[in-house]
Structure formats: C-alpha cells, structure tokens
Design a protein around this nucleic acid. Structure first.
Length: 406
RNA sequence: GGGGGGAUACCAAAGUGGCCAACUGGGGCAGACUGUAAAUCUGCUGGCGCGAGCCUUCGCAGGUUCAAAUCCUGCUCCCCCCA
C-alpha cells in the first residue's frame, strides 16, 4: 500500500507537536520511506509501573495512532527493565522493582487501555529487558562513557533537584542511556515523547549516531494540563481523567477544566480535522460554555459511544447546570416507622469518609433533603410508610431515601 | 574519612517543656457568586461523641518529668561543606 505524500503526512504529524528535532530529517525520512515503500519505525516507550492510562497519555498514543494510519510501524516498548530505575523525570522517587508477574500484568492492562486508541493489529510490542537484561557490566561502562556528567546535569529536572538539595541517585543517570539503547536496538526512525522526555530522546539520537545509525527524529508532544489548570495531568496530583472512566464522570471532569484548556484539548484529544481547528479556537473564546460541552461530548463519545455521551450530557445538565436531581441515583431503603439520624444515614451512603466530615458538611450547609438545607447536625428523620425523599450531600452526591412501605 | 544541618499533618513551613490537635501558605471540601469553571469573599480541614468531653498524632524505639513536637539516649533516613 502506498503512503500519502510527504506534505500530507507532515500536516498530520505536526498537529499539536511542540517540537520535532530536526524537522527536515523527518521530511527526508518520509521521502525515503515513500520511495522505498518502507514504513518508518515509530518508537514509544511506556512505563509498566503505572498502568492506569488517562487523557494525558492519550496525547502521545494518539500521535502514534496517526503514524499508524499513515502506514508506519508502531513499536511500543514496555520498559520492564528501565522500570527498575524509575524515570527520574518529574520528581518521582525511585520506584520499587516489580516482579515479572506484576510487570506482565501491568503491561497487559496498559496495552488493553492503549488499544482504545491504537490499532492493535499493527502494533509491535517489545520488552526492553530482552536486550538490556543481557548487557554485562563492561557493556554498561562503555555505554555510560558516551555521556558526560556536565551533559547529564543539563537536564533540567536533574539540575533542579540538585539545586533543591534533593537526592539524585547515580543509577538515575543510567535511565536516559537505557532508553537510548532501546533506540539503538530497534534502529528506530522516530521516537515520541512528552516534552519532559526531550533529553532522553536526544540521548537515543546521540547513541544511534555513535553506532553509525541514521539517528531517530525526536518528536515532542506537550504535557497535557489537567483539570486544575496548573499541573500536568497526573494521577499523583489527582488531576486526571482516566480513559476508562464512566461516561458521566468523564463528561463532568472535562466540563470542569478551565476555559484556556478548551482549545488545546480539542487539538490534542479529538479528531476534529486540522483545517477546522482555527474555527474551534474562535468558538472556545466566544462561547466557552457550549464549546466546552461539545468538547466533553466529543471525548466521551470517543471512549464510549454516542448513547453514553448523550446520557452523560443529560445527567450533567440536570445536576450541575439546572441544579436538578438526576434520575437514576442510588436508593437507600429504611424500615417504615423507624427513626434514623441524618448523620447515620449519610454514613450509610458512603459519601463521606468520617462522621466528623459529615458533621462539617451539615454545619456548612452542604446537605439538603428535597432541596431543603439541613444544618442541624443532630437532625434525625422518621420514615413513614410513604417516605420518598432525595438527599443531597455536597455538590454532586445524590441518594434517594425511601421506606420499605410496610 | 572529618565537620555541620535536618526529619512536624496531603505538600510547604512555624513551634524548641505546659497557653498545641499544633501559627501560616498551598491544596482539598462546603457556602455565596456563576455558563461548568476560574477569580473573589466566607467557613471548615486527625478520629470518636447530638453534646459536655474523650482518644490518637509531630522520622523510629526507649528514657527524664506532674507535664514533651519541644529535654536525654540509641536507631533509621536525608542534605550541605571539607578531603
């Protein structure tokens, strides 16, 4: 099968990228691939220690998918060996070594989720222990001679940690080398990564050059900012939207992103054609409310389906926008004639973590029954035969309270 | 190898014998406001108890004291400087 023209490919590839180093080389590679009718090897490393994927991961996976759709070969590297080190990008501490079984399990889970985005059939999976595990100490010494310490501490997260007096273990320096070695083994043509991976990707390039390979092109995608509008999307900031999240949850979370993120999300997370993007940029500014709903709808549909997205929209509009009680909420049933303290009822619902928290909520007006705020923490209610009320706890937790009717 | 500094709640950071469940900021939660949000203002932010009140917490383990986050001893971990 043929590839689209270099220009067409570049247009797809460029979308959303922060940097392509060097762009001309990518064009050359594409040209050559076209001439020889040979797909490029596109490499993406993934971390088997964190198997829960979210929209942040999807940015890069989507890019990989785009390469697949253009006819290139996607290679997912499961970093089972580098997992021993723990990527020092960000302020992660060294991660505990995982057992082979755990890695296997995580890798599978990772791949299952990644399949929501990638074309499974066309994805090659490799474990880097396959080659890194075979290297002996001499190999490692030779490899580590390729980079100087000065070069290493150029890396801004190292220098930052150094300045902050945070510890940097020596073995962390090996991480970029190991990742780079992966590129040498694969003879990858392009490696994808977030901007925080720039250094690592460049090391791969350098090592390939040392081996007289045609060095890989490094393609950096932005780090997706999470719903808090400040930090990158990440589980450790509790600032993420999971790929497998329930539709309503997903829709709601997307709706809560700050306005500035509407456009970047369209660009990075949806299939809106490139040529329509400017239109969305304008819409996002002029009508953030509706545009954001469209965004939430589009993404929810992408990971679930149309019906789920419709339902989610309806649900959210009722609860958050119109302040109505949604249909379809959990029901708690109590014995008719029995009396229960509100405190105990809320405990039953599981909406709060402790009685102290419940009390705080009640005192602060965060609890209502049938729309009426209850601020007396000693409040208790008696269930009659026909009791059927709606309890609201906090912003969006609802529960129906009914009696069993005798 | 030598010298010095440090470990406090989700994070950062005060507190150096009782007034400490522990200042303050961030974060989080709730309320008001709103187009969801953001911003702003207000309150809350260890647990148990309707409540008076009680219990547990300041790296770990012991000790001194009527009383310790604060003093002593040992341990673990971290950082800096010199070599």
């Amino acid at each position: 099968m043929g590839f689209p023209s270099v220009e067409e490919q570049m247009e797809v590839i460029r979308r959303g990228t922060v940097e392509i180093i060097p762009e001309e080389e990518l064009e050359d590679k594409l040209k050559k691939s076209l001439e020889e009718n040979r797909p490029l090897k596109i490499k993406l490393g993934c971390d088997p220690t964190r198997p829960d994927l979210h929209l942040g991961h999807s940015v890069i996976l989507r890019k990989l998918r785009q390469f697949q759709d253009l006819g290139h070969e996607a290679i997912l590297i499961i970093g089972d060996f580098t997992g021993l080190i723990g990527d020092p990008s960000g302020q992660n501490k060294t991660r505990p070594a995982l057992s082979p079984e755990e890695i296997e399990k995580n890798a599978k889970s990772y791949f299952d989720q990644a399949s929501l985005i990638l074309d499974e059939e066309k994805t090659t999976i490799k474990y880097n222990s396959e080659w890194l595990g075979k290297m002996n100490f001499e190999d490692v010494i030779r490899l580590s001679s390729k980079l100087t310490v000065a070069r290493m501490i150029e890396r801004d997260d190292f220098s930052r940690r150094f300045e902050n007096n945070d510890p940097i273990s020596l073995h962390e320096f090996l991480y970029p080398l190991a990742q780079g070695q992966d590129s040498v083994e694969l003879e990858s043509d392009v490696e994808l990564g977030g901007t925080d991976q720039k250094f690592n990707l460049l090391v791969g390039r350098q090592l390939q050059k040392e081996q007289d390979q045609n060095p890989q092109v490094c393609l950096m995608m932005p780090l997706l900012v999470g719903p808090d509008g400040v930090n990158k999307m990440s589980k450790s900031y509790d600032n993420y939207i999971g790929l497998t999240e329930e539709p309503r949850e997903m829709y709601g979370k997307i709706l809560s992103i700050p306005d500035e993120l509407i456009y970047p999300y369209f660009e990075l997370l949806t299939d809106i054609p490139v040529e329509q993007l400017p239109e969305y940029k304008q819409k996002a500014e002029e009508d953030p409310r509706n545009t954001k709903h469209e965004l939430a709808y589009t993404i929810t549909r992408l990971y679930h389906n149309q019906n789920a997205a419709d339902d989610a929209r309806k649900y959210i509009e009722q609860t958050l926008v119109k302040n109505e009680v949604p249909e379809d909420i959990p029901v708690l049933t109590f014995e008719a004639g029995s009396e229960h303290r509100l405190l105990d009822i809320i405990k039953e619902t599981g909406f709060t973590d402790s009685n102290a928290e419940t009390k705080r909520l009640i005192q602060q007006g965060g609890v209502a029954i049938d729309g009426e705020k209850i601020t007396d923490k000693g409040y208790s209610m008696t269930f009659k035969a026909d009791t059927d009320v709606t309890l609201k706890v906090g912003k969006r937790n609802f529960c129906r309270l009914t009696s069993n009717g005798v």
